[in-house]
């Protein structure tokens, strides 16, 4: 699961897809996850990182992570469409 190479992400959390011209804003946790996707971290590594940094449980994170990946896929921001489990 990789973020498309040409998608630009600002520190403030603005995603810009240069192919479509669309922009999206994401919250700080979203930025963290996107940066981890950029580094090609596995869903397990991303889960460990987020659970270590934020006060949430695994089940809640997994649900939110799937929702988030689904949104990124829907907007064509990911290179792969394969099913990923956190």
């Amino acid at each position: 699961m990789k973020l498309r190479k040409n998608v630009a992400v600002s520190e403030a959390g603005l995603l810009f897809n240069p192919v479509t011209g669309e922009s999206y804003s994401v919250n700080p946790i979203g930025v963290e996850i996107i940066n981890l996707l950029r580094e090609e971290k596995s869903p397990e590594d991303i889960s460990k990182f987020i659970l270590g940094k934020f006060a949430t449980d695994k089940a809640t994170f997994e649900k939110d992570y799937h929702d988030f990946i689904g949104i990124l896929e829907h907007h064509n921001l990911l290179d792969s469409h394969e099913e990923t489990k956190a």
Partner: peptide, 21 residues
């Protein structure tokens, strides 16, 4: 190439962004 970001009632671009498709 450009994508219209803000379109008037007449369908004209009031704002747009350069893209790389």
């Amino acid at each position: 190439p450009m994508r219209k970001q803000y379109i008037t009632e007449k369908g004209k671009a009031w704002g747009g962004i350069s893209i790389s498709d």
